[in-house]
């Protein structure tokens, strides 16, 4: 019981210490609130801007729109080679989403970024200057959100 009490005491001390160093001042909390409000408003606005209509994949190199595809039906896929600054980025679109399948860049962050399928999502390969943007929100006619279809 003594050990338990002392463990509880040290745990409480740890939480008090953490709270002391992370609570911030009223000014900090006001800055936090304003920042969160601004970010959530921007997120909502972007969702509304990019999320209307059927989902389309747009592939850009710099300012040039290279291709624009709807998501294909299940079982089918589209492969597109986008020529950028360093070479060719392979892009694969299927009914599940779109992703970089290959890239000439050193870091391969764009390939590791994986598959995306929601309206307003973006994958960019900065070294090769290729950008994939998903506009719209409906994939193959259905529109799911967290609660209902």
């Amino acid at each position: 019981m003594v050990t338990l009490a002392s463990e509880n005491g040290s745990g409480q001390k740890l939480w008090c210490g953490l709270w002391r160093w992370l609570k911030g001042s009223w000014t900090d909390r006001t800055v936090l609130l304003i920042s969160l409000a601004g970010i959530l408003y921007a997120w909502q606005w972007i969702h509304a801007e990019a999320g209307a209509g059927p989902a389309m994949v747009e592939i850009y190199h710099d300012k040039v729109l290279l291709a624009r595809y709807p998501f294909p039906e299940p079982g089918k896929s589209i492969h597109f080679d986008a020529e950028g600054e360093l070479g060719i980025s392979g892009i694969l679109i299927d009914s599940e989403g779109v992703h970089f399948s290959s890239s000439p860049c050193r870091t391969q962050y764009c390939v590791l970024n994986g598959r995306h399928s929601k309206g307003g999502e973006v994958i960019a390969c900065v070294p090769n200057r290729i950008l994939i943007a998903i506009k719209g929100s409906h994939i193959n006619g259905s529109h799911y959100d967290a609660i209902v279809e």
Partner: peptide, 22 residues
């Protein structure tokens, strides 16, 4: 990149920045 669609990525990353900044 020269595409404003890039800013679609910004809000979730700003949220993470809020956490790490704090």
């Amino acid at each position: 990149i020269h595409q404003q669609a890039l800013y679609y990525l910004l809000p979730p990353l700003l949220l993470l920045s809020v956490v790490t900044g704090w």
